[in-house]
Simulated scan of single mutants.
Amino acid sequence: MSNLKKILNLHEEATHLRLRDVCEKHGASIFSKVRLADILPIEGSGISDAEYKFALQSHFDFVVSNDTHTPLFAVEFDGPLHTNEKQQNRDKIKNKLCRKFDFPLLRINSNYLKKAYRGMDLLSWFVEVWFAWGWFEKAQASGEVPVDEIFMPQMMINIPGYDKQFPLMLSAPIRNKIQKLCFSEKIIDMVPSHIIGRSDDGTYRAISYIRVTKEQGIIVDTAMRSQDFPVSQVDALDELVTFQLYEKLIETLESGVGLIYLEEIASHIEEFKKKYEMRRAFSTSSSTTKGDPLCL
């Protein structure tokens, strides 16, 4: 039996498979365990001796390149060891070097792999949005898309490899189900409301809420760490928090447990606005009637 070590552990192997499935459709390749010094132009760059040594000795878990083998971005899988102080310091140096050389770095954990949203895990969504953003920029440069149009991944009608329309709008089926609950008079609001903010440490946070009766509703919250990757965490949270809200909504409707008064929801919203820098907010029109505690 060979005593040689495997190049990838189980989580890294899963990451590689997901990356391959997405990237090959776009003519991109994936390389594993590539030294930072083989990607980043560190020679004569002015970085410190310690950073230079780090770049020579450290690697990216995965590097994605185009068909000319030009690096596009890197992906790091942060397992349990990334919670200790020594590894966190190494991660900070790697993040700093990537920012200096303007090289996108996506950091993921098992949450980006283990759950599918409309058939797409979170890692695949981030990478698909990255490629869609590249197409969008080229379309603007060629005049196919107006230069003042804002890129919204949820509005992409088609992308390679998916037969669904608007495949990057992960919450589309969930939003349809929420509308049907409203039409059947099981809840008051037709669409959920949400607020997304950013904390001082760069973490993105979101709350989503919906009225079930005229007096009560439900509220959920979630968060996502900041990324050195040109895909909006606000867009990602917008999708994820909708799933979380729907799961709690169904549980509440089936059990009758979990409803809180609208005044309490309003209090949560006010506290959220005080603590975090606002990045996006949407309030359903049915929650803006006179005397409604959610009319903030």
Rank of each mutant, 00 (worst) to 15 (best):
M1S: 14
M1K: 11
L4H: 13
K6H: 08
K6E: 11
L19Q: 10
E24P: 02
G27A: 07
S32R: 13
S32H: 14
S32D: 10
K33M: 13
V34R: 02
R35A: 09
D38E: 14
G44S: 03
G44I: 03
G46Y: 03
G46L: 00
D49H: 05
L56W: 03
S58Y: 15
F62N: 09
S65G: 04
D67S: 01
T70C: 04
T70R: 14
D78T: 01
D78L: 10
G79V: 04
Q88S: 14
R90C: 07
N95C: 07
L97R: 12
P104K: 05
L105A: 10
R107G: 06
I108P: 01
S110K: 12
S110D: 09
S110C: 00
A116Q: 15
W125K: 03
G134A: 14
G134P: 00
E144V: 06
M152P: 00
P153Q: 04
M156L: 15
P160I: 01
M169C: 06
M169L: 12
S171Q: 07
I174P: 00
N176H: 14
P192G: 11
S193Q: 09
H194I: 13
I195G: 03
G197F: 15
Y204V: 03
I210S: 03
K214R: 11
I218R: 01
I219R: 00
V220Q: 00
T222M: 06
A223H: 13
S226F: 02
Q227D: 03
S232C: 13
Q233T: 12
D235H: 08
L240W: 05
L240H: 08
F243D: 03
Y246C: 05
Y246P: 04
E247T: 09
K248W: 08
L249H: 07
T252R: 07
L253E: 08
G256H: 02
V257R: 04
G258W: 13
E264F: 00
A266E: 07
E271D: 06
K274F: 13
K274C: 08
M278L: 15
R280E: 13
A281M: 14
A281F: 06
F282G: 02
T284H: 14
G291F: 12
L294T: 05
